[in-house]
Amino acid sequence: MPAERMADFRPDAAADVTDVVCPVTFVKALAALDELEDGRILEIRLNDGEAARNVPLSLKDEGHQVLRLTDNGDGTCALLVRKVSACPVE
């Protein structure tokens, strides 16, 4: 997707996971996504470092679409992710 289009994503909901450490960061993000309908966008505020490295990868691994990760400049990042309902796992 072209860079200019990326700025157009409007989050439908927000979650702050800066108060917890991995893997609860990911779990809180999953819980927030669970509240959303398929295709909706969640903005997640997470700490730089471990959370910023792991949470996008874990969400991608779950099948969700990671749209953008931006540095907030205050030790936190903003992650935009689109909910993609996973197929049932056997």
């Binding site: 108060d19 893997p23 609860v24 990911f26 779990v27 819980a31 669970d34 874990s58 996973a86």
Partner: peptide
Amino acid sequence: MAFNAEQLARYSRQIILKELGIKG
């Protein structure tokens, strides 16, 4: 049914399993 922060932490090691997740 939503889980509070304490519940998410308590069950985090199994919620992160794909076979469980929030739904499980």
